[in-house]
Every structure is written in structure tokens, then in C-alpha cells.
Design a protein around this nucleic acid. Sequence first.
DNA 1: GATAATCGTCAGAGAATCTTACCATTCCGG
DNA 2: CCGGAATGGTAAGATTCTCTGACGATTATC
Lengths: 143, 143
Amino acid sequence: MPQPSTAVLMFVAYRHAEKRIVDFLAESGFGDITLAQGRIAARLSEDGLRLTELAEQAQVTKQTAGFLVDQLEAAGYVERVPDPSDARARLIRLAPRGRQVQRRARVMERRIEAEWERHLGAERMADLHASLADLREITDPYR
Amino acid sequence: MPQPSTAVLMFVAYRHAEKRIVDFLAESGFGDITLAQGRIAARLSEDGLRLTELAEQAQVTKQTAGFLVDQLEAAGYVERVPDPSDARARLIRLAPRGRQVQRRARVMERRIEAEWERHLGAERMADLHASLADLREITDPYR
DNA sequence: GATAATCGTCAGAGAATCTTACCATTCCGG
DNA sequence: CCGGAATGGTAAGATTCTCTGACGATTATC
């Protein structure tokens, strides 16, 4: 790779951040969260989300999403409740332990972004974020 | 995810690009290349690289790298040759078919970057690439 | 030369993912 | 309002990717 493409450069930085967050969570007493579970859990809130939507957003099949949610549920991070508007569906929402781990993950997320800002300067960091957010319009079908 | 972090935004764009490249390769007659194989193959050249270095750069264990190189070798994309400077080692280098697929991947890579540039404008695209390249200094241990 | 480090492989296991098929519920056109 | 199509989710099974631990061969170090 003489000149890594823009996309590969994104991957390098992303994976660095992801790994540091998972390691940090392990140190914080959440050692049972895997990377794949984290990608799912990051998309949940207390509001609840259907499995189908979750799977679309996370870009996996609903079977895969269900598999990971099963594990998160068994570990006490999420819970499934009936969807009042549709008896076929259930809403997946963060349990208290899930909120804890999400708060903890955000701590490291902010720390990493602070490092990046120190390295790039505030203005370039803001531009970087803005450009990435704009790219989402043409790269994220589930925006 | 109310406000996706910078890292997650990187992942979204990266995955979009990666998927489009793999799909494009499949249409181009390279339907046997998987995503994981592609991440390995992207780092190779005709010069040859040791398995250990390849594994470090791709951020996988050398067993995993070996597993993927076995498949790439069986499919004719790469070949292993003795390392003249060390009898323990072998160099993994692109075979002719590997060079073909890499050229093809670069076509789509450039196409995607052109789309991004149309969306952001030339200046912001250049800034994005430069910032990502700078971040690599603090995010990529194998730079 | 003896010892330690490095390069790669083998064996075995676990995690994540997919495809195909299916049931239950809801939506919709006639 | 009824019957077919669509949607939400699960089940079963296979495949792919990845890791840990152990090991033989070669090289580097003292």
C-alpha cells in the first residue's frame, strides 16, 4: 500500500478507536462484551428498536442481529419488550447495565476524540467530523 | 445513536467503500475474493512481504494471515517464494492474477473517491484525506 | 557453541456470519 | 371482510474468520 486510500485510512483510525474502547470496557468490568456485540449495543437506547431496524442499521442479517441480541440479553445489557403497535414485533432496549456500559464507552470515545483534536487542532478536527457527517448522505443507506 | 462519533462515521464510509469494491470485483470475474481476503491482498505487492509483517499490518494473528494467504494462494492470487535473506521466512507476493484484481479494485476505489470529491468539493476532500493521513501517526502502530 | 528470539505451521476451538426454511401477525386489494 | 402478500421474527445448519497454545526450523546473541 504505497498511498493508502481515503477509505483505508478511515478503517485504520476506526479500528484503533474500537479496540481501545473494547479494551477500556474490559478494564471497567465489562469484559464480556465482544466487538460484534458492541457494534449492536452502540445503536440501542432506552427507547427500544425493532430487530429488523437494528439489523439494517448494523448492516447484518436479522438472524445475526438476533444472535447477538440473545447474548446481550443473557448478559443483562438489553431486554426485549412487546411492541405495543405490532404484536409480531418486540422492541429491544437497553437495560440498566446496558446504559452503564454505554456511558462508560462514551468516556473513552470522548478521550480518543480529544486526542485526535490535540493532534489535528480544533479547526481541522471540526472539519473532519463535518466532512464525514456529510459523506454519510451518500454512504449510509439507513441514515 | 443520536450523534455518531467521528470513529463511527469513519466506519460507515469505510464499509460502504469496501462493500462496493468487493461487489465490483465479483462482477469483474473475481467472485471468489472475500472481504477478509481482500484486506490481506490489498497490502501485498510484487515485492513480497513476510507473513509476520503482513499479519501486523492487517492487525490479525499470523495464524489468521496464514489461513487467508493459503486461500489466496490456492485461488492463484498470490505465491510464496523463499526469502533469500532468511531461510525460515518466505515472501508472499502478488501473482499475475493478484495484480489484475488489485488494478481492478483501484478502478472502483478511484470511482468512489471521485464521488466523495463531487459531494464535498475538491478542497474539503483534500483536507479530509490529509487529516486522516495525519491521524495515522497516532492510530496506526505499524505505520 | 549454548541459549534466546524469530518465522512459520499445526491442531483445536469459539465467534460471527450467512442461507434456507418456517410460523405468526398485519396489511391490502377486490 | 376475506384471502393473498408482505413483514417481524425464529430455527437449523453450514461456512468463514479468528484466536490460543504448542511446536519445529532457523537465526541472532552472548
